[in-house]
Design a protein around this nucleic acid. Structure first.
Lengths: 330, 330
DNA sequence: CTCTTTTATGAATACGTATTCATAAAATTA
DNA sequence: TAATTTTATGAATACGTATTCATAAAAGAG
């Protein structure tokens, strides 16, 4: 690959002059510009971003630490984040974090010298928070938050839990189960809290199923619920992905949705709208996607010169979308 | 951020010695190693991969130019490719290529100094092929191929088209439509060819709908088919994503699947198995995902010292999975 | 004890770029 | 015309690492 030195030699100028042409500096002779541009074309020159990053001490790239794409929620958010970052001239390094080993990913990311991090896989009491804070790299949490605050965009999960549960209660279901993920995630924590709140005192421990969010675990949870003396007639699944697993498994077992079991999810993934699915779900009311808040604020943090940066703490209001996976108890 | 120089100073050694410790060189005193490691910990040192890349003239990273994630097919392949690369110590830069502007993405990628490229968004006669060849960067095409050959993994799309169409014919459907994407993609090209082949002479031009693969375009195509004097009773949609769009739209219009319309897709995305969807589809027979072939061969190309590298041209055999979105014509 | 080999280390350098500083030439002002 | 400012350019350097080369010390061979 041709370097700026090669271009310089061919154009009969010095390397800094080539650099100036590349970066559109003023104060460079028009004829010189043309000479250099010609040489660049002839040599098929492309600036080496690695070298540039080293010199400038910034990479114009951010890291996205996302949940696995098996959950369609992260599909949309990943697309949003990558595209918004790109529109601002930033490249995104995408990491798909499976359960738990945040430390390893975090180590990886730091070595890459990214200018900032969007983090969606963090636990409420994750020690990684302190380390990130200490590293001085700007970071924004997305969808989940940490107990210590910081920058985040989230949905009001507790209110969402209340909305979903109340919806099912209002349809006449008194036996409503909760299936979710680890409650050391702020999302599941909040959604469970809302569920309990809506139910008031009458919460039964074995109606609450905390899984690892995999399809197998969800199926297992459903089986356990069905085996109860008093099986529930409605399920609030804490994500649409889990709701779909419930729905498919129950249908395969001959259950009709919603006649034999009402289901409410959360996230409003695109598939939920499919005519054969029609999943009742909870989403947020904001006019732009959550990921966009995250990236925009992250870039603000990166490019702000102020020593003390203001926090962004956005909690979006939830909204219920009633479709046909939930119905009146018969 | 502390540099290896800082570590060297603190440990009372030279910078190259720190470098040796980092890279596990032999011939370095045990006590020195310990001194250096202690200094690294105390300073919270992390090697700067940008600097390393510049020096070594390789980035240990590959680019994946994928179709947009709205198509679930690319969700799975992206996951596979990122994870396999990671398992081999390579980082993946992910690009989501919308229709057509391959050139721009390609320019971007070259500047990043990646060691290799997995390319899934390429047209049969894409000029980008020549440029990539000229750039000397190893690249492997994934899912789609180019007319000039090169390295690729694909499904036998023509045979897949035959399989799908024959399946519908065997169910008694004589009026089978095709809905697909741009036929300058090898995938759609082949699938259409197979469709025509299976139908023999009796192909009607207005049963063939070439769209841009968006939901709106697919809906439009379905509308056009329904408006025909002789509307088809079965549709072969060239991807599952498009098949789902057909299915949802038709159901919303009151059609029953498969009683009023049989649908066959292709790709076997996870959603196709959902009890409420039950999409008949075509997939491949291989024991490992296509993306894995692509990455493994790409890494082979990158690390092979031979001047002349052998091509990898894999065409996987297709297999029909009959579910309940297709049925006997009534 | 001398000569040779091995081990352990540092000095110098290169990767490709952007940036600072100095300076010559040109343009402007008085 | 002389003095000053502006414009255009190159030389030198830095970013953080890995690598080559030289060399001093230690170990082994005779």
């Amino acid at each position: 690959m041709a370097s700026s030195k090669d271009v310089a030699k061919r154009a009969g100028v010095s390397q800094p002059t080539v650099s100036r042409v590349i970066n559109g500096s003023t104060n460079v002779n028009k004829e010189t510009i043309e000479k250099v541009q010609r040489a660049m074309e002839e040599l098929n020159y492309r600036p080496n971003l690695i070298a540039r990053s080293l010199k400038q001490q910034k990479t114009k790239s951010i890291a996205l630490i996302s949940g696995a794409l098996h959950n369609p929620f992260f599909v949309d958010s990943t697309t949003t984040i990558v595209n918004v970052a790109k529109a601002h001239g930033y490249r995104t390094l995408v990491y798909f974090e499976e359960q738990g080993n945040n430390e390893a990913v975090y180590e990886e990311v730091l070595k890459q010298q990214v200018d900032g991090i969007v983090l969606s896989s963090i636990f409420i009491d994750d020690p990684v928070y302190r380390e990130l804070e200490h590293s001085k790299i700007p970071f924004v949490m997305f969808n989940r938050r940490h107990q210590l605050g910081g920058n985040f965009v989230e949905i009001d999960n507790e209110k969402a839990g209340v909305l979903a549960t109340n919806h099912l209660l209002e349809l006449g279901h008194s036996k409503v189960a909760w299936i979710g993920g680890p409650t050391n995630c702020s999302t599941f924590h909040g959604r469970l809290l809302g569920y309990k709140k809506a139910l008031g005192g009458i919460v039964k421990g074995n109606w609450i199923k905390e899984t690892n969010t995999t399809e197998e675990a969800v199926i297992d949870a459903v089986d356990q619920l069905l085996a109860l003396d008093e099986p529930p007639t409605a399920i609030f699944a804490a994500t649409d992905a889990m709701a779909l697993s419930c729905q498919s498994y129950l249908m395969n077992k001959g259950y009709r949705i919603p006649e034999d079991m009402s289901i409410c999810g959360m996230d409003d993934i695109p598939m939920s709208r499919h005519a054969a699915i029609q999943l009742t779900t909870v989403t947020h009311e904001a006019s732009k996607p959550m990921g966009q808040y995250a990236v925009e604020h992250l870039l603000h943090l990166i490019n702000s010169s102020k020593e003390v940066k203001e926090d962004m703490q956005v909690t979006l209001r939830p909204r219920l979308i009633a479709r046909h996976s939930s119905g009146v108890k018969n």
